[in-house]
Design a protein around this nucleic acid. Sequence first.
DNA 1: CCAAAAGTGTTAGCATTACACCCATGC
DNA 2: GCATGGGTGTAATGCTAACACTTTTGG
Lengths: 252, 252
Amino acid sequence: MVPVKNPSISVDCVVFGFDGTSLKVLLVKRGYRERQPDGQTVLREDVKLPGSPIYQDEDVSSSAYRILEEMTNLKQVYLKQLQVFSDPDRIGDDDLGWLNETYGFETRRIISIAYYSRVKLSPKIISHTAMRRAEWHDVQSVKRLALDHKAILMTALKTLSTQLANEPIAFELLPRKFTIRQLQNLYEAILGIEIDNRNFRKKILGSGYLEPLQEREKGVAHKPAQYYQFNRHAYERETRLKSKLNFINWHD
Amino acid sequence: MVPVKNPSISVDCVVFGFDGTSLKVLLVKRGYRERQPDGQTVLREDVKLPGSPIYQDEDVSSSAYRILEEMTNLKQVYLKQLQVFSDPDRIGDDDLGWLNETYGFETRRIISIAYYSRVKLSPKIISHTAMRRAEWHDVQSVKRLALDHKAILMTALKTLSTQLANEPIAFELLPRKFTIRQLQNLYEAILGIEIDNRNFRKKILGSGYLEPLQEREKGVAHKPAQYYQFNRHAYERETRLKSKLNFINWHD
DNA sequence: CCAAAAGTGTTAGCATTACACCCATGC
DNA sequence: GCATGGGTGTAATGCTAACACTTTTGG
């Protein structure tokens, strides 16, 4: 039995991944009809964020988990509500046709509740998403997205940066074992800054939350890098006896 | 003509103010019937956040502005979307009766989009809110609120702290002219910390964004304090050529 | 004169920054 | 042996934190 869809509330998910060099976002293809000035319609394809209307009697966050699981086959992932997008103009003329064909909706008044999540890119996930007409795009090179999804992506990116700077979330985007260089690449890619490698190592290794593994890179044409893993336990034990005036940081 | 209300989406606003000593939040009284075990109903009164269902064809944020304007008579205020509250159990049995009597709704499936804002408390505002059955409560002493409004308030408070620590929002809660002591009280009240007065003055005055006025306190039984005002212009001109590794602050 | 809050300086410790060279590996 | 990225130390600077006394006013 097909669940009843709520025609005024949808959920869209921004799913970030990291391939060791650049930040990726999961997008799905969408076919739609573009109405030409002469009245004819042309078939077009563009990309959008994975999303769906919520089902009646479904909690909004369940809806987000459902979408994420369909796309990635992942169950226990971090998922955070970003914001509601409710601009009355967020749905264009061509989108209206697409909504009607896809869901049978007639209305323009659909608000979207945006969620974002972070996943570890793995061959398994990549092959699963590929089967769903979904693709991992370089965030840097995303130009146009359907509906107001570009704005949603930008909001997600901003939240990601803020969180990256203030919480140890980097390790949710990296594989369990990683090199310091990969970690640094991640910070540089997301925050859009260059970091001095010596200072970075000092700070990161000095934190005491990274454990070196008995394993190094193999088959690289240079000194092979040490692998590390994040010790979340050590992090969580950390007491919060920190700075006071440090609370005021208007210009970070 | 009465506008049509959307029965599945409501907006609630957390409005903060500061009286020079403690943080206040705007709450409205609500009368409702409590069903007793013996089947009788008793009239009760409690408090809730100002809010309302959105109107059909009304943008969600317009709805928030509308509510805020009704309550405070303020138009151009800061208003930020917090989060959607969509727990299916957020509406209790007694709330259901109240919703029915007040709006004619039958359903439990109402999601709330929470907004928060900051206002300068002034005699004008206080008298206007008083006329609306609204009261400014000490945030510290708020115990129980209707629906899930306590959770909404807590979320707003957390956002307020974070913003206070990272942006010069203190001045939106203070009168145009204020003393350093008032400013310090505000930081201490919201962040819940004690701050050394000498270090605080050093940091705040050293920022270069506070301008001393040609005016001091009057009629106080101690050395009268200097008044200052915030120079937003100077702040906004500030270039963003700041720290780099400082971006990583897992323990602030 | 007394109470009450305003206002002021110094020092020690720590974190951030800038900067240049040797090391291990594959080809 | 050479190209490639991994890995290391030091010195200067700036920010934070701890801490106690004098000043100005009203009553």
